[in-house]
């Protein structure tokens, strides 16, 4: 988890938006969802999962270190409004970006049911933060080490079947999870918004690398999204496209000989400018 000092981004950041980070001179541009922001303090919070060379390199940064480049906020903000009863779902690393949506939906007067889940207890975080702005919080873990044993999808199914009326579902997390949530809500035709995370380069609408099929149209997730109607997204295509550089990622990881133990740590990284 990173707390980054970047007043110019913190000032403008809204729920649902992301930014692009470049860690060092030879680094990639990687998109990361903004998990929290504080305009007054000029800080934003990022939560990363160390899965590739760039995120592992971010993981070895220490308090006071500087990120080379940071641009944002990017993408369209979430549509925050009064809907009535909303179900907000964060899976795994998606717990972080669902948090600002939870907060904003609560402030907008909605009745908020939050569902967060992870593989196991150690990977869960922010239960308290999410709970603070939720009328009800359901927690799931795949192995049952915390909360209900099962997937967030199971909890969504339960809520949808017991509530007489659900007006909106927002799901953020792994592609497979968002696809599953969208399947649950398709039958009862509950509007379902998902936040997509395809491969991006510039993230400003210039490269088209992040194109996704929504309905029968191709959209650029970076500028048309990242949020789309979950019932219209071609998730299978998205999963395929995210694997475009699997071989290259292995090569990069082999080159990256960092004797690094993945840990969760909080620190401040400053960003110049």
């Amino acid at each position: 988890m990173f707390v980054v000092e970047t007043p110019r981004i913190a000032r403008k950041s809204k729920p649902g938006q992301f930014l692009v980070v470049r860690v060092d001179e030879r680094g990639e541009r990687i998109p990361l969802t903004i998990a929290d922001s504080d305009a007054e303090k000029g800080i934003i919070t990022l939560v990363i999962q160390e899965v590739g060379k760039s995120t592992i390199r971010m993981g070895v940064l220490r308090e006071g270190d500087t990120l080379l480049d940071l641009v944002g906020p990017l993408g369209k903000p979430s549509h925050i409004d009064y809907f009535g009863k909303v179900v907000l779902v964060g899976g795994g690393i998606g717990i972080a970006p669902i948090y600002p949506v939870v907060k904003a939906m609560k402030y907008a007067g909605n009745s908020v049911v939050s569902i967060i889940g992870a593989r196991t207890k150690e990977l869960l975080f922010w239960e308290d933060k999410v709970k603070e702005f939720s009328d009800e919080l359901l927690v799931t873990t795949d192995d049952g080490s915390c909360g209900h044993k099962g997937f967030v999808t199971d909890a969504v199914r339960e809520v949808v079947s017991r509530e007489p009326q659900v007006d909106l579902v927002v799901a953020i997390g792994p592609v497979i999870m968002m696809k599953a949530v969208a399947e649950v809500t398709r039958g009862p035709a509950i509007q379902t918004i998902v936040s997509l995370n395809p491969i991006m380069v510039d993230a400003t609408g210039m490269c088209g690398g992040c194109r996704v099929t929504v309905g029968d149209r191709t959209k650029f997730a970076c500028v048309d999204g990242p949020e789309f109607d979950g019932h219209l997204v071609d998730f299978d295509e998205l999963m395929r496209r995210r694997k475009m550089y699997v071989d290259e990622e292995k090569t990069a990881l082999q080159k990256c000989r960092l004797n690094h133990v993945a840990t969760q740590h909080t620190f401040r990284a400053e960003h110049k400018g």
Binding site: E28, S54, V201, C207, Y245
Partner: peptide, 22 residues
Amino acid sequence: ANEFLTRSNLMKAYRFPEYDTP
């Protein structure tokens, strides 16, 4: 072409894996 050229030119993908962008 924008993506292909941006990867190669701006991000120096032609020097991957010395540079990170594939």
